[in-house]
Amino acid sequence: METSKQNWTGKISVATIGATDKEGGTRSSQVTVGGETTLPYLFKEGDIPNAPVIAMEVLDIEPTDWPDALKKPFGDSLKDPVKWAVKCVEEYKAPLISVKLIGTHPDFGNKSAADSGKLIKDILQAVKVPLIILGSGDDEKDNVVLAKASEVSKGERCLIGDATEKNYKTLTASCLADGHNIIGESPIDINIAKQVNILISEMGFPLDRIVINPTIGALGYGMEYAYSIMERARNAALIGDKMLAMPFICLVGQEAWRAKEAKAPSSEHPEWGDEYSRGVLWEIETAVSVLVAGADILVMRHPKAIEEAKKYIDNLMRR
């Protein structure tokens, strides 16, 4: 019988997040992603050695725009990022925590780099899983905040981001000096995605410590743009483009929970049905869409959405 198998020559790089005492860190576990030699879940023409992982998101300030359905599972811990992180690991078994330092943004409290540094230290103390550390997106502020975060977590092999085309030098230098992985961000543009990786690597940064953030949109809110960028990048990587052959990180929770379909109360949209399931499923479905396109790390919020996305990943990985 005729088949149509692709002979892929490229391979997605393998990134390891977290350093145990063997590697000079204090994490109790490591998370490894990437290494694919085939398109998503086509096991018959290549290997997918590492299943996608889900990091749980923790913010450095109490969330203001989260609907009740999303706040409830975390209770009072939302007021204290350290407790919040502990809850994610102990109660919800998160293998990876993503700390977003949104409170350092001038518009959201303008917390100092010193405050963030202390918070990162405290979280590293309180939980032993590897960390992702994300800035607030304000270039100037990120340059001081992330430099500090990198410094206090030296040797822990975190994943820190985001480096952009216009603002990559400070973060790249920090991550290089302190032994971290880095996230290169591009605004849904494959050429910029590649350019950012080239710029970072030209500073002597190893390719296998770079992760791509393709800046996704939520389901129904531009999801298809990043979906296609990811498919294009993966195809290019598998035929040998090393500057696009990095694992993807997708900020699923942050995007999904901005959607009206995720947070509008049933009183406003009775035709959409049960409010709780609808919000959770909007996050799951946003995760599904990027998984099909090749996502490696998902940053998510709702414990139920995470549990279901995990189940789905287990199903996908069953060959």
């Binding site: 379909e261 959409w272 049905g273 399931s277 599904v288």
Partner: peptide, 18 residues
Amino acid sequence: RNPWSTLPILTLRQNIYT
């Protein structure tokens, strides 16, 4: 056939087929 479980599929289809 819940509205909340069908709407995401229909939305995903709309996105993919744009």
